[in-house]
Amino acid sequence: MKAFEVVTEPINPQIYADFVLRPEAGAVTLFTGHVREWTKGVRTLYLAYEAYVPMAEKKLAQIGREIEEKWPGAQAAIAHRIGELQISDIAVVIAVSSPHRKAAYEANEYAIERIKEIVPIWKKEIWEDGEEWIGDQKKKPEGGNQ
């Protein structure tokens, strides 16, 4: 495994927790993001994730560096799975270790927020009656300039 990676196989979160665990760490937070069946009353059958893999792994590593700068002593490992994922599958895992728990909690939430901002990964929801790339809802009005 790599500390910051995009994978196609099912994620075992424990290996990322083990990776960040060090003698000086008094806390490890382990977040797993899962495929949710119901979103705003619409039932998802499964999800399809796509990534610009080399850039996505660079951006995950950038988030790791940002965490080390913001919370000195903290260390992160992040993996995101792509391909077809079923309900309850793990899509993303974030492990953060730090000397004390507060930094580990805060940095872990920071990581998922940053993933949703800068990491080139896209999710398509497949429903019983259709499908859509999520993120594409934010289209600009007709005539808007890029």
Binding site: H80, I115, E117, W122
Partner: peptide
């Protein structure tokens, strides 16, 4: 050069 539509990972 890559066109990056709004991302939706996580």
């Amino acid at each position: 050069a890559a066109f990056i539509p709004p991302v939706s990972g996580g």
